[in-house]
């Protein structure tokens, strides 16, 4: 295919193609395209050179096949083939294709933004009201509760949680050797939000609950408001009792709110129990996890994985003398003090 085209062009002079081709009457559609190729190809000067060299190499091999392919060519020729036939053209084509792919990707991004825009269609007052409502469980079980399908609030809450987690990690002196604190925090928060939403949505599908993925994302996202408040307070005020109270009250309220909304949209005792039990357990445990264990687990894991690789026996052997000397010292001190006491008496 490519060889035949190259051959056709090189048989004539580089600029002599016009006359030959113009004479042929009926095939003018083909020939017009080819003329266009030659003229426009010459504007890419370096490409034209490569093209010329390639043609010279191919010329000998192509000459033999030229006639038979040329006959088949007219039928197949539909514009594009003539363009692809030359190396310079091919390179240009690839560049063009890559550019087109990039452009279409960028365009798709913008198209997706337009698709997502309705979910971000909120007023500040609405967001504020929803944040407050996320703390107020509604005891209405017989009729499906309204859940707003909106993503602005949840997104912002997740990012707030990321910032709070970063703060908590920094103040607790977490060291993550592979990767950044930022990545870990983002992964945790988005992982929880998207993962648990999908999981509960899957369960809701199994239990025949009337809820969409969007509503689930919104419900769980606003449920994170309680987490944000609790963690923000307890990362700065270090009282365990305060944390437990806040965990039960604020975390419990936001969980209850989600549970009530889910119950009102599910039918039957067992499905309700499964769905709400799972959600409540996951949500409350996540808060507990973020407060206590998060950085410690990460640190502990990393220490065991890639910390100072010291076998435990050695560590025991190193630790023992310390304990022993401490014990000996303690014994000495007690003996001495007893001696002193006896002596004074």
């Amino acid at each position: 295919m490519s060889s035949s085209d190259g051959n056709k062009n090189t048989n004539t002079e580089p600029w002599g193609g016009f006359d030959d081709n113009m004479i042929q009457g009926t095939g003018s559609a083909v020939i017009d395209m080819e003329n266009m190729d030659d003229t426009s190809g010459s504007s890419f000067e370096d490409m034209g050179e490569i093209h010329q060299r390639m043609k010279e190499e191919e010329e000998v091999a192509a000459e033999a096949e030229a006639t038979e392919e040329e006959t088949g060519e007219d039928g197949e020729f539909l514009g594009m083939k003539g363009i692809k036939g030359q190396l310079g053209r091919q390179v240009a084509d690839e560049v063009w294709q890559a550019g087109k792919r990039q452009a279409s990707k960028a365009f798709n991004l913008y198209a997706n933004i337009d698709i997502l825009r309705p979910y971000f269609d909120v007023e500040p007052m609405q967001v504020r009201n929803r944040l407050i409502e996320s703390m107020i469980p509604i005891r209405m079980i017989n009729f499906p509760q309204k859940i707003a399908g909106e993503l602005y609030g949840p997104m912002m809450l997740v990012f707030t949680l990321v910032a709070i987690l970063l703060h908590g990690m920094k103040t607790s002196g977490t060291v993550i050797r592979e990767g950044t604190l930022m990545g870990t925090a983002i992964g945790t928060c988005f992982g929880y939000w998207l993962g648990v939403s999908s999981f509960i949505y899957f369960l809701a599908y199994l239990c025949n609950a009337q809820i969409t993925m969007l509503q689930m994302l919104s419900l769980l996202g606003y449920g994170l408001f309680g987490h944000c408040v609790v963690l923000f307070v307890t990362y700065n005020v270090h009282f365990h009792s305060l944390f437990y109270i806040l965990w039960l009250v604020i975390g419990g309220l936001s969980t209850l709110r989600m549970v009530a909304a889910l119950i009102s949209r599910t039918v039957g005792q067992t499905p309700r129990l499964i769905l709400c039990g799972t959600l409540a357990a996951l949500h409350m445990l996540f808060l507990l996890y973020l407060h206590f264990a998060y950085h410690k687990i990460v640190e502990g894991l990393l220490d065991t994985l890639e910390g100072p690789n010291m076998p435990p026996i050695q560590r025991v052997a190193r630790d023992l003398p310390v304990v022993a000397t401490a014990a000996v010292n303690a014994v000495n001190v007690t003996v001495k003090s007893i001696g002193v006491m006896l002596h004074s008496q």
Partner: peptide, 13 residues
């Protein structure tokens, strides 16, 4: 004009 607060919040954060 009615959504300025929503835009400012992430900038603030």
């Amino acid at each position: 004009p009615n959504r300025k607060a929503l835009v400012v919040y992430p900038v603030f954060l």
